[in-house]
Amino acid sequence: MALAQRFCPWRIKDADQKALYLRGDQLLVGDPNVDNCCAEKICILPNRGLDRTKVPIFLGIQGGSRCLACVETGEGPILQLEDVNIEDLYKGGEQATRFTFFQRSSGSAFKLEAAAWPGWFLCGPAEPQQPVQLVKESEPLARTEFYFEQSR
């Protein structure tokens, strides 16, 4: 069994228990029962090249063949999915930091901070069927807490 396959049993949900799902090239948050979607299985592998006390992780979808990356736009970072294998990142691929998130515990939930952009966090949208994005920690009403649930 491939390394990524062993680490893909996760679903990520926001504080309202809405799951991350893929539509086109974007990760959205929604209710699979209402939005006619299927919660995405997420692969999680550690970034062994960064400080392990900060719990650096890679997030992959589609069996680990695509990974969430943080890309600079000139107005701050944005999220995008890139066709890069999570196992290559795990083995020490180039530019791995922009694919890395620090997993911070917040009670039973987690916040995911972009390693390449300290103070920027993965954020679920307030409106349904909108993409997940990055926001500054200071953003009021930011929906930055997520729950990891093992999928069956």
Rank of each mutant, 00 (worst) to 15 (best):
L3M: 11
L3Q: 04
Q5G: 08
F7N: 10
C8D: 02
C8E: 04
P9S: 12
R11E: 08
I12E: 05
I12R: 00
K13R: 14
K13I: 03
D14T: 01
A15P: 00
D16S: 12
Q17E: 12
K18N: 12
A19D: 07
L20N: 02
L20P: 00
L20S: 00
Y21L: 00
R23E: 11
Q26D: 09
Q26R: 13
D31E: 11
N33Q: 13
V34D: 09
N36L: 10
N36R: 12
C37H: 03
E40P: 00
E40C: 01
K41I: 01
I44W: 02
I44D: 00
P46I: 00
P46T: 10
R48G: 06
R48T: 12
L50V: 00
D51S: 10
T53Q: 11
K54M: 12
F58N: 01
L59M: 15
I61C: 03
I61F: 09
Q62N: 13
G63E: 06
S65M: 08
S65V: 05
R66W: 07
L68R: 02
A69E: 06
C70Q: 10
V71H: 12
V71A: 07
V71M: 10
E72I: 02
E72S: 13
T73H: 08
G74R: 07
G74L: 08
P77R: 04
P77D: 05
I78R: 14
I78E: 11
L81R: 04
D83S: 15
N85H: 15
I86Q: 03
E87H: 03
L89I: 06
Y90G: 00
G92C: 06
G93S: 09
Q95F: 11
Q95R: 14
A96E: 05
T97M: 13
R98S: 11
F99R: 01
F99W: 05
F102H: 13
Q103R: 15
Q103K: 15
Q103F: 01
Q103I: 00
S105G: 14
S106Y: 07
G107I: 08
S108C: 08
A109Q: 09
A109F: 12
F110T: 05
F110Y: 15
K111T: 11
L112I: 05
E113N: 07
E113M: 14
A114T: 03
A115Y: 05
A115E: 03
A116H: 05
A116C: 13
A116E: 12
W117R: 06
W120L: 03
F121R: 02
C123A: 15
C123E: 11
C123K: 04
C123S: 14
P125K: 07
P125Y: 08
P125H: 08
P125L: 09
A126N: 11
A126L: 12
E127K: 13
P128W: 08
Q129K: 15
Q130A: 15
Q130K: 15
Q130W: 06
P131M: 08
P131S: 09
Q133E: 12
V135Y: 04
K136A: 14
K136H: 14
K136S: 13
S138P: 01
P140E: 12
L141V: 06
R143H: 11
T144I: 15
E145K: 10
E145F: 03
Y147I: 10
F148M: 14
Q150I: 12
S151W: 06
